[in-house]
Every structure is written in structure tokens, then in C-alpha cells.
Amino acid sequence: MNGDVTMCTSLTYENLAHQHLLARTMDFPTTTPWRPIFLPRRFEWHTGLATTMVARYAYLGGGRLPVNWPEPLMADGVNETGLTCAELYLPHAARYADQPAPKKINLTPQDFINWVLAQHRNLAEVVADLPHVQLVAQSWADDDFVYPFHWLLSDNTGQTLVIEPTGEPLKAQVNPSGILTNTPVLTTHLQNLAKLLDQPSSKFTTNTITAAQNWHAQKRPLPTGDVPTARFNRMALLRWGSPTVSAVTTNAIIMNWLAQVSLPYDAHRRHQLSHNYTHYRAVINATTQEYLFWSRTAEQPRHLRLTPAMAETWTVPFIFPIN
């Protein structure tokens, strides 16, 4: 599979009720269906390096069931403590170790989101554990491809972090924009946004937000196109140029923003590995542990919640229907 094909867009958001959310499109070529999946506490999952790990926390997110592999491949989710994470593509920029390292937590790229959500309460715990992790360039499950990922994380502190494996020891960057798409790396995205808004500094500040608000007030057209830079800039302008909304209207507003950067499905290209389209849109509420999943084939979204009872009593994974 070509590493350039996925075109996901994601954002974090705080509404007027001070709820913290992470949202994303899942854009991917034709593959097994994506659907909501629950993974329980004490779930034993197999890494791509023939080791096992046991989950400390239950989580709910979007995933798919690979062929000939015992566990789901997860793309995003929220755990029972309100930690959220989404993985996105980083082609040409992601760099992994060639071999596992002694005395390290060695993971394939696909394992990383499980490690984040199943093993940690909050961002602080993830950051503290990052120096112990090594990502290894090895395939996982039913695919020979080593996926080039980076990750957007948030929790109920409202902070947003990005983890980009670019060859140095793993570290978490604060992402004040709350936006992430695909390559280039976050620093370059912020530079491009500053240039668009005619800002003297690439740092995302209150001046950046004011410039985005002025863009909307002047009714200037939003950036268009499928390339990551255009989608990053469009989502940044939508997210920061619009008034903050109530809890009641948050899901509808964010789903509308995601629809504006979604990729259409072409039935004539459905068997082509190069056909990249939006399989689902998701809005994840870290504060309430709610998961809104809108499949391409559904007329309306599925509204799920990771309840305390689920976390306490559900002992096996549960695969929810797509629609």
C-alpha cells in the first residue's frame, strides 16, 4: 500500500460548557469496514513484535478487524479516564528504529494507540512514559506495509499534544492550534498557516486567533483542495474563526466542519488501492466519554458512551454495528 494515500483531518475543541473534544475524519483506501469498537480493562493484546500487553483502562473508538489477526486495529478513541488519541498519516517524514531495543517498550506504529489509551490516565502519564518507548519499523497483522503515523492527543486539561516520530527520541509537542492533518510536520503546518494569515511569527497565539476571526468577518473564501496544507488551514480557520458554541450544538457544528474536508466515495474506483475516501467522521467527548461515529453509509451518526458500568463489567471486546 502506498504511504501517501490517506488524507485524515483532526481537531480538538472546547465548547462553552468547558467540555473537551477530539474529532477526526478517517480517510483511507478500500479496506475492511471501520466501526465503533470497545476494548475492556485487562484486555490482553498482541503487539506486532510477538509480545503481549495487558490493558489497565477500557476504551471506545473507531477500528477495523484485520484478516488473520486476533485483535482490532484501532485508529482513535477515548478511555474511561477521558484520555483521547487519534492516529494520522505522516508519509515521508516518519522514521522508526530498525530493530527493538533492550530495556525499552518496543512497539510497532499500529500498537502505539493501544499503548496510549489502554495504559495511561492522562497526558502527563503518556509524556512521562514516552522516553521508554521505541517504535520499530515492522509490519503488523494482515499487511506487509509499515505505516507512517503521527498522533494527536488530548484530555480533560484541555491541552493538545502531537507526537511525531521523525528519527529522534519520541517527544510530545504542545499543539495550541489543535489541528492536525498529514505530512508536513506540525511545525511546517503552523508556518504555512502564519503565512496565510500574514502573521510575523509562526507561533500560534492570540494574534493568530484574531487573524482567523478577521478572515471570517471579512467573508474571505476558505482554502480548498485535498492536500494536507489546505485542509489544515481550512480547519484552523473554521475552528478559530467561528464563535465558540454550546454543548447542545457542538456535535452538529464539528460534524459540519469535518464534512467540509471529507473525501467522496467513487463506486467505480472501489477496488483500487489508490481510492482514498472518508470512511467515517467521529466526534469524541473526553469529558463525557461519548463517541459519535458517522459512517459513510449511514443516514445518521451512532451515539455511544463509555459508561462506568461498561468499564467495570464488560470483560471482552465488543464490535458495534456500523450503522
Rank of each mutant, 00 (worst) to 15 (best):
W34I: 10
S246D: 12
L222N: 06
A93I: 01
I37D: 04
R269M: 06
A286H: 06
F204G: 02
D142G: 11
E299T: 01
L130N: 06
G63C: 11
V185C: 05
N79E: 06
A50R: 14
P223L: 09
E299N: 14
T30C: 04
A101R: 11
E299F: 00
L180R: 04
D226H: 08
L39T: 13
L117C: 08
G48E: 12
Q199H: 07
K195D: 08
H46Q: 15
A124T: 13
I284Y: 10
S10A: 15
Q119P: 06
L170C: 05
L292Q: 08
Q213R: 15
Q119Y: 06
I209T: 13
Y89Q: 03
P91V: 10
E80K: 00
G178K: 05
W115A: 12
W257E: 06
R56L: 09
G225D: 03
T81N: 02
M1S: 11
E168N: 11
A212V: 04
L258H: 09
R302V: 00
R220G: 08
G48A: 12
T81H: 09
T81Y: 05
L152P: 00
G63I: 14
P165Y: 12
A194K: 01
Y291T: 00
F43Y: 15
L222G: 09
G167R: 08
T6C: 11
A259D: 14
M53N: 13
D4F: 11
A97L: 13
D4Q: 05
H303V: 01
A23R: 04
I254L: 15
A230I: 01
T47R: 06
R239H: 08
P165H: 10
D143A: 13
T52D: 03
S295W: 05
T307E: 02
T224A: 14
N15A: 05
D76P: 07
Q218S: 13
N122P: 00
V67L: 12
N323K: 12
G82F: 01
Q159V: 13
A286L: 09
